[in-house]
């Protein structure tokens, strides 16, 4: 199953887990299934229309999905998905 890497500010939804294995063949599917496993997390990543929030970056195998096919981006069985927030202060 693809592996989703969870940033610190979202780990309260994953019981502190840094990585979660989630089934799915596209980023959109995986985010939906991630929400099933970790209720509340999707709203922090996506806006009310279901689009990835403009300040959140989602990467599939080190490539920003904005430069791929956004939520339609295909995800292979062994891919790693990273959710990367902005950087806090200092």
């Amino acid at each position: 199953m693809p592996l989703v890497r969870i940033p610190t500010p979202l780990r309260k939804y994953t019981q502190g887990q840094e990585e979660v294995s989630v089934a799915g063949t596209t980023v959109g599917e995986i985010l939906t299934n991630l929400e099933g496993a970790c209720p509340g997390i999707r709203e922090r990543i996506c806006d009310a229309e279901g689009r990835v929030r403009r300040f959140v970056n989602v990467f599939v195998a080190d490539e920003d999905i904005r430069f791929l096919q956004n939520l339609e981006t295909p995800v292979a069985e062994r891919d790693e998905i990273s959710i990367v927030p902005a950087i806090a202060g200092g």
Partner: peptide, 19 residues
Amino acid sequence: DDAMHGLEGMKHLPSSLVP
């Protein structure tokens, strides 16, 4: 207003190491 934010350079203290 939230731990998961996009205001680069700003800190959400309730979820951070407090300086």
